[in-house]
Amino acid sequence: MPDAFPKPARFSEAEWAARVQLAACYRIFAHLGWAELIYNHISLRVPGQKMPPLHGASHRSPPEGDGSSRERPGDEPDHFLINPFGLHYTEVTASNLVKVDGEGCIVGNADWSINPAGFTFHGAIHATLPDAHCVMHVHTTPTMAVCCLKDGLSFTNFYAAQLWGQVAYHDFEGITVNRDEGARILASSGGKPVLLLRNHGPVVIGRTLAQAFNIMWLVQRACEIQVASQALGELQPITEAALQACVRDSLNFNPKFGAGEDSFSAMQRLIDRIDPGYRA
């Protein structure tokens, strides 16, 4: 499959691999119904700086070494990839993703601009948290519904249980186009991987794209089940001991077991069967 879509000479091997993976993720979101017209965002740090050693791990072969970050050859640091503003997720490809710096300014040549709201808080998170390799934001109906609830996410189902202690909140300030809100959103996150923007939607921060995708899957499924179960009656609580065990045992947070690499790869193979054009 990759041989059918050769790497353009202007991209390094490391950047091109990141572009292909991110473009695949946009197509996966569209396939799952997580797209929002031309809006919302998934941003990914361009390789070439210190990165966590999670990529490529699987439950079959745990990563070797002491788990410390290491340098990967590639592009200049503090650059990020994000979707072109104006394209549906099904139109995003590896080559038309836009590279920006920490200020959201386009680096190099690009046929499309970016949505200013797309990098207001993404940029602040990437620039401040060294492990924030990937940042995702969606507006799906169940996640937004839960973000509109006064009590937010209820840790009363299998998926939500894995997010115990992993969720923070940020009060609604309007459309996220003001740069100073980025710092406040970052402060609200408190270092947690899931930030629920009240009255708005979820933000997920991952040490790899695969991990971010799998945490977003947990958030989406947790909210779907919560919305459905709340409509039926009173929710059944889960003991704190059981919640702690769920977080401990969840493969989505465990680098020893790939932190979601296997399931993301399975979804990418599905997209390759449907429409491999994202690799262009």
Rank of each mutant, 00 (worst) to 15 (best):
S95K: 12
H133Q: 04
G258A: 11
C148T: 15
A242P: 04
S229D: 15
E240F: 00
L44K: 00
L235I: 04
L209P: 03
P63I: 14
N83L: 06
R70T: 09
S113I: 05
A228P: 00
Q226E: 15
F213K: 06
A117G: 13
T140C: 07
C147P: 05
R279D: 07
I82S: 05
P53D: 05
T140P: 04
F158E: 13
A183S: 04
V138I: 15
G201M: 05
A212G: 01
F253V: 02
Q21T: 15
V167Y: 00
T93N: 08
H170R: 03
G165P: 03
L232R: 03
V135F: 00
H41R: 12
L153G: 08
G123E: 07
E36V: 03
P62R: 05
L186N: 00
K99S: 05
R184D: 09
A4N: 10
I225A: 13
L37R: 12
I42M: 14
G191W: 10
S12E: 08
H126V: 05
H122L: 07
M144V: 15
G260K: 00
L149S: 15
V98R: 11
T156H: 02
E15A: 15
G165K: 09
N96F: 14
P47L: 14
P62M: 07
M51I: 09
R269S: 11
H88M: 09
E173G: 09
F5Q: 12
C147D: 04
N96S: 07
T90V: 13
I271Y: 00
R207C: 07
R248I: 09
L153W: 03
H41Y: 13
G56H: 03
F264M: 14
A183G: 07
P142G: 11
F213Q: 02
Q220G: 01
N115Y: 01
A280K: 07
H139G: 05
I114V: 14
C25I: 04
T208H: 02
P116W: 06
P202C: 11
C223G: 12
A266C: 03
T208A: 15
S43C: 13
D111R: 06
H126M: 08
H200C: 03
E76Y: 12
A212E: 00
R279I: 08
R70V: 13
A266Y: 01
S61E: 08
N178L: 02
A160C: 07
R70D: 03
V138S: 13
A57N: 10
F257N: 09
S250H: 00
R273M: 10
R10E: 10
G152Q: 09
Y159V: 03
D101Q: 05
Q226A: 06
E240W: 00
A259K: 09
Q211M: 14
Q236V: 06
L22D: 07
T90R: 11
T143C: 14
Y26C: 11
Y159I: 01
I274C: 08
P237T: 12
V194R: 08
T120Q: 02
A127E: 07
L44W: 00
E224W: 01
A228Q: 12
C223A: 10
N109W: 04
A259N: 04
A259F: 05
H126A: 10
